[in-house]
Design a protein around this nucleic acid. Structure first.
Lengths: 229, 229
DNA sequence: ACCTGAACACCGTTCAAGT
DNA sequence: ACCTGAACACCGTTCAAGT
């Protein structure tokens, strides 16, 4: 990069760019500098190329985002569902899902509202989540709602993890005693356990969701027994 | 707007602008046109003013965002906690919270990672959530984690509601039968009930969270009885 | 103090010209 | 086909000049 000669005009002997190279450079820049310092011109500079050269490989900045989304979706694709019990599998999946997004904070908001391509690898994981819930007795439409709800929680938690730590700090307001006390007590817990506030909240919420599922499942089992009798 | 005369140079007799006017115009534009067509120049045009005039009342575009966030936070501030049982109060709160954000989709991602000012009105609601959970037996640090988890779920659900409806459409892929069946079955449920997919998922997740809380609470009550004996 | 008008330093994107 | 170089139509923001 430092000692690179200036390239002359005309088509070079071998390609300097490619779609994947552009997408990965864009993701690097996003991680390094956040949404600032992330533009087509920045990507081009980092690749030692003129901005207009990018448009031979990507259609637009939005197209670069689509590429980033697919790269990230691929990384979520883990398959813990074959070996683990249904609840453990869901917990493992949720953790890995959140971790992928949390390690690329600026992408969360970008990607959460962007449709997947139909050939996306994400659907492999979706399939497994629906299947495991269906096998455990949930209707498939309800399983899909549960899947979406869990994704919403995971993405929201990743957003929260990306927020500044003192986002909810009450300062020294006297009119909100319970909240201030809760904030102080949580800080102590954070110091003790080493788990950050966002991590604690994620675990708390995931516990509640899984506990809610357990309750639905055992209620279903009980009513089945009553019915069979 | 149509018949306005061109204003000459120099300070006008009475102010045409104010901070709140700018912020509310910005929110209107955001709702109308999304993130496109939303810029300082657009705000200025809608107010019949030159872009540079805005900077007499706001420091920057970021400052406008901060204003929008505070307007929205104020609207969430409902107080159903005094009259309702703890679980009903949480459900009411979650619904109103989501509704405020869902009616301003483009703001969600913008505002979710932005710290609140210490004098924000949002803390009034936080105080009530912590208080009601504390009264029902949760430790305050844990109550705060539950509050944050519920917010994450709510914001994530609002993001989901803002996403295009066919975001997860599997097309006619043959390799994901359970997911495709679930998608079709959910469509039927949507047609029957009138509740959109995002609404169904939100209700499913909220049910799970509340059920999880009920389970924790009754487990606590049971262990207390055992201990007292 | 609060507006206009002109300007500055940026963007994403297009397109002809070169190999 | 794939690069450079110049250009276009935009941004957010600054600042002098005017009342």
């Amino acid at each position: 990069m430092a000692g690179e000669r200036q390239r002359g005009v005309g088509r070079p002997n071998e390609n300097v760019l490619s779609r994947v190279l552009i997408v990965e450079t864009a993701l690097d820049l996003l991680d390094l500098h956040g949404r600032d310092g992330f533009g087509m011109r920045d990507i081009a500079r980092r690749l030692g190329v003129r901005p207009s050269a990018l448009y031979n490989h990507v259609a637009s900045k939005d197209d670069v985002f689509r590429g980033i989304r697919e790269v990230i979706a691929t990384r979520i694709t883990v398959a813990p569902f074959v070996t683990q019990r249904w609840d453990e599998a869901l917990i493992t999946w949720a953790h890995s899902y959140r971790e992928v997004f949390a390690s690329h904070p600026p992408t969360i908001a970008l990607l959460a509202v962007m449709p997947f391509e139909t050939d996306s690898e994400i659907f492999g994981t979706y399939e497994q989540v629906i299947e495991v819930l269906y096998r455990e007795g949930w209707e498939r439409a309800e399983a899909l709602n549960i899947l979406v709800a869990m994704e919403s929680f995971i993405l929201g938690s990743a957003l929260d993890a990306a927020a500044p730590a003192d986002m909810m700090s009450p300062g020294d307001r006297a009119d909100i005693p319970h909240f201030s006390a809760a904030y102080a007590e949580r800080d102590m817990r954070t110091a003790d356990s080493g788990a950050g506030p966002a991590d604690q909240a994620f675990e708390a919420g995931l516990n509640l969701l899984i506990a809610g599922l357990e309750a639905q499942r055992s209620a279903r089992a009980a009513s089945r027994v009553a019915h069979d009798r």
